[in-house]
Design a protein around this nucleic acid. Sequence first.
DNA 1: GCATTAAATAGAA
DNA 2: TTCTATTTAATGC
Length: 235
Amino acid sequence: MSRLDESLLRGVPPFSKLSRPEIREILDLARPGRHAEGAAVFREGMAAERFFLLLDGFVRAVRTSPEGEQIIVLHIPPGELLGIAPAIGRTHYPATAICASESVTLSWPVRLWTVFAGKYDGFASETYRTLGNRLGEVQETVMELATKAVEQRVASALLRMVHQSGRKADGGIEIGFPVTRANISEMTGTTLHTVSRLLAAWEKRGIVESARKHITVTDPHQLMLLSGASGAGSP
DNA sequence: GCATTAAATAGAA
DNA sequence: TTCTATTTAATGC
């Protein structure tokens, strides 16, 4: 049984304030996991038995409507906890966690969440902070869905992905995980056809470039204007 | 303005 | 080849 390296948790917010021996303790209790692209870390409605830390990769939280339609609620970047429903007293996972790219996780049984929260300084506050941030994010997208036009929604969705996963590529910023038009339609409440048409139009205008499953934003400022963020618009 | 349907093309496994 | 992602046109609300 190989031990996990302590550097894994260095600089990861929920654990950043801990001493070396404390990190050792936590790692010895962790179960490592690898998940292929498209695999589910856990599923909506399952009993929440473990909580996870995403070390590498991107995970999307997906909800399925009774009619079987998938909605992508939000994306989780590396370094964040997921499956922390137990922290707010929920016994079942509220959404399905699908890996957007190949992902690496650590996980612990939920009973340890309370132990960690009591024992380690900053652990509880950090998890509540990310919970709060996510609540804010879904509220924002709900607002957009209700008030904004499709073009603006797709623009904001692209910007959000760029912000949390963007990496410098030649001529722009590239979204750091595979995304299909269908994926984008699932986060914006439209169809893949409309997304395809919008991206084609934007590509002509030099705002984005795209290959299959790969999108780079070449003119973030124009996208921001299209998203109708704030400032001068035409409502 | 945007969804739906259908049909064609092209890349990946 | 077969499956999947993407594009494009036509039609309707």
